[in-house]
């Protein structure tokens, strides 16, 4: 594998690790493991832990995928591996 492709793959893995950490924190963290702690905080008519479990994590997932797609298109360009 060429050096360029190797660093491309490393950059990708770093981004994947970062995104998956957030993925885990918002859902399994905020929505499940820390739900009781976050439920101490109430915003509007809903407690925060419950909100993350039923709403917030889903919004975060959507943002995460678009963020990853956007960052990867930048990484693709930087390494000159874009299609067409």
């Amino acid at each position: 594998m060429s050096t360029n492709k190797r660093t491309y793959w490393q950059d990708n893995l770093r981004l994947v690790r970062f995104c998956l950490t957030i993925w885990f924190v918002v859902s399994f963290g905020f929505g499940i493991l820390l739900v009781d702690v976050l439920n101490q905080i109430q915003i509007g008519g809903v407690r925060l832990g419950f909100w993350f479990a039923q709403q917030g994590s889903i919004y975060a997932f959507v943002v995460l995928i678009f963020y990853y797609a956007w960052r990867m298109s930048v990484v693709d360009k930087a390494h000159g591996v874009t299609e067409d």
């Binding site: 995104c19 479990a53 039923q54 994590s57 889903i58 997932f61 995460l64 995928i65 797609a69 990867m72």
Partner: peptide, 23 residues
């Protein structure tokens, strides 16, 4: 509250799909 398993479970998989498999 327990309904969250379906809400998170049936959406969070798309993050795995987008980052780890689809491309």
């Amino acid at each position: 509250y327990d309904g969250a398993v379906y809400l998170m479970g049936w959406t969070g998989g798309y993050v795995l799909l987008a980052l780890l498999l689809a491309p």
